[in-house]
Design a protein around this nucleic acid. Structure first.
Length: 589
RNA sequence: GGCCCCGUAGUUCAACGGAUAGAACGAGCGUUUCCUAAACGCUAAAUCCCAGUUCGAUUCUGGGCGGGGCUACCA
């Protein structure tokens, strides 16, 4: 609606006041009559009139010059415009004839946008924090695609280091050869158990040393198990065959486990990067930057960058022994990715505790002279907290991803069976449906929140299936599909001359009309919450329409046909919007 | 200590500097001989405090108070 109308308003303002600036219209509040509202305060100094007089002046001019506007009212400094039904009609014509309303065609020749997300460690299973990360990364990828971008999804797997050796050591020590197959345990959970087992052993050993007078840090460093783990890491770096073999075997178990969880969540990656490969990257880039004076070497041989003029600190990029730190390989990996793929931007979905790290990383890459450094973006999402605060593995309050998905499915099952809505479905269909509903509830619960804000998850209370939730939107879709099934075989012929638009129908059309704009705003701000809100508004608008208007029992065949078509367009938009959130829209529920 | 986020109904979340701060859950009341009541409608309920900028501030600025994070030659 906005385009034709705002250019009409723009013309009027230019004629009246010589206004050249942008014109922004907003939706009229429900309490007032109108479809669009212009705030006139900015024009008062040009009109030299009161707010109401100015609004009336603009309104009269619009009425005279544009067929889009049929009525207006001025409330204080607010000019409420009532659009002609022809305008609403033409909007619905555009919506119903579009092949993918809400999506923009992907420009195949353009460089892609890369999105990095998930990026787990291979020493413990995925938890609720990863779930937020994964859902955000996946949804942002879908939204970027809908906004017309090709997308490359990647993860970087933290598969090396002392923490990995800990679970390896504990498995050798206490595992007795157990495998995922022999234990029936998912590989990532099995390995995670040994990581916990190591920690117990370490604490026991450290306790003894502390009894002999060592402080806690020293005791942990000198504990025999820790020394053996350090030795194992050295062997790994030296390429020791036995250590490497165990490492590959246990990581394989973890990947099988992760992939099972990724499959459940419906996500996948175009490319996996492994730190065991990438940790060598970056050193060369540091040397080159050193030669060009971006970095400097201290007397002890360590290499630094001085970012104090940019309001940051001095930051180490190479240790004095020449080995790399996290920053080093992140520099190298970013450069590598722009070589590996035809991309022109890279988004990192990483928690906000790493805000400083990414500020520094992006600044270094800019100082190294990479033009694409301005197209790096850290989607810095907030932590998922429990009502008691942060999840802590030591206190056993970490919410496991697989357990959570199981619970969501179980809740969906219990609720559906209580409502008696699954009679006539096969067991396989039921399970599939409970998965769709349970995951829909979880995904929506997480994605409806602004990614940047921390959010609270209460494990004591199950996630809702009523109200502002995924299942509410899924239910609206299922209900529409039920109507569409019943409408099969009926006449689809109607013309606008046979239709009178009531407020609910108008509202539904105007909500549908917002879809493309919502997609673009979500893509621009990397915020699935925008799409989530739109999907809810759309479902809400449909339910209002449905409540007020008989569809299959409408007064004439033409009205039935029109309303069925409105239903069809709505169902398609709901399904697509949910799809952008990674949520499936069921045919019935 | 320094730097960075955040503070909205009982609770979980909304609100490009715009109207009477929206939803949902929970609480109370109502709607089904009719297309799925996981729905629809009604009632009660909130901007941490103090200044400033502005025609207008939840939003911007400064100062408090409260919560979280970062501040490793860890990853």
């Amino acid at each position: 609606m906005a385009d034709a109308l705002s250019s009409a308003v723009s013309t009027v303002l230019n004629t009246l006041y010589g206004w050249e600036g942008p014109v922004e219209l907003q939706e009229t509040r429900k309490d007032f009559e109108g479809d669009a509202t212009l705030v006139v305060f900015p024009f008062l100094k040009h009109s030299r009139k009161s707010p109401v007089d100015t609004a009336n002046e603009i309104g009269e001019a619009l009425l005279a010059s544009s067929p889009l506007v049929v009525r207006f009212n001025a409330v204080q400094g607010f000019l409420n415009l009532v659009l002609s039904s022809a305008q609403i009609q033409s909007r619905f014509d555009a919506i119903r004839t579009a092949s993918d309303w809400g999506a923009f065609p992907v420009e195949a020749a353009q460089p892609a946008a890369m999105v990095e997300f998930s990026s787990p460690n291979t020493n413990k299973p995925l938890h609720l924090g990863h779930v937020r990360n994964i859902l955000l990364g996946h949804s942002v990828s879908r939204i970027l695609e809908a906004s017309g971008r090709k997308v490359v999804q990647v993860q970087i797997v933290n598969d090396r280091g002392v923490h990995i050796c800990k679970s390896m050591w504990a498995w050798k020590q206490f595992g007795g050869g157990v495998t995922p197959d022999s234990s029936g345990k998912k590989g990532d959970h099995l390995v995670g158990d040994f990581y916990v087992r190591f920690d117990q052993e370490l604490r026991a050993q450290a306790k003894e040393l502390m009894a002999q007078g060592l402080d806690e840090d020293a005791a942990k460093a000198q504990a025999p198990c820790m020394r053996e783990v350090q030795e194992m890491l050295r062997q790994w770096e030296a390429g020791d065959a036995e250590v490497r073999e165990l490492w590959a075997k246990m990581n394989g178990w973890v990947y099988d486990g992760f992939n099972a969880t990724y499959d459940r969540l419906g996500v996948s990656f175009d490319r996996n990067y492994y730190e065991s490969d990438t940790y060598v990257l970056g050193k060369q880039d540091i040397e080159e930057g050193l030669a060009r004076g971006v970095f400097y070497r201290r007397d002890d041989g360590s290499v630094w960058i001085d970012l104090r003029e940019d309001g940051l600190d001095e930051k180490l990029v190479l240790r004095r022994d020449g080995t790399s730190v996290y920053m080093t390989q992140d520099i190298g990996t970013a450069i590598q990715r722009f070589k590996d793929f035809a991309i022109d931007r890279l988004t990192y979905v990483v928690g906000n505790e790493q805000d400083y790290h990414f500020k520094v990383l992006f600044l270094i890459l800019k100082k190294l002279g990479y033009a694409w450094a301005d197209q790096l973006y850290h989607l810095s999402y907030g932590m998922v907290d429990l009502p008691s605060g942060k999840m802590k593995s030591r206190e056993g309050t970490v919410v496991d991803a697989d357990d959570l998905l199981d619970e969501m499915e179980a809740t969906a099952r219990a609720l559906s069976e209580e409502l008696g809505k699954t009679d006539g479905l096969s067991d396989a269909e039921k399970s599939a449906l409970y998965q769709v509903l349970g995951h829909g509830a979880l995904k929506y619960f997480i994605l409806k929140v602004d990614p940047r804000k921390r959010m609270v998850f209460n494990p004591e209370e199950s996630i809702d299936f009523n109200g502002h939730t995924g299942p509410f939107i899924q239910y609206s879709h299922a209900r529409i599909k039920s109507i569409l099934r019943k409408a099969e075989g009926r006449s689809t012929a109607w013309t606008w001359s046979e239709i009178t638009l009531d407020d609910r129908s108008k509202d539904l059309i105007q909500t549908l009309d917002r879809f493309p704009e919502a997609v673009q705003q979500a893509a621009r701000t990397y915020s699935p919450a925008v799409v989530a809100q739109f999907a809810y508004d759309l479902a809400k608008a449909f339910n209002g329409f449905y409540q007020a208007n008989p569809i299959l029992n409408a007064e004439s065949d033409a009205v039935v046909a029109f309303r069925v078509e409105l239903c069809r367009a709505t169902a398609a938009a709901v399904k697509r919007a949910l799809g952008l959130l990674g949520i499936t829209a069921p045919e019935r529920m």
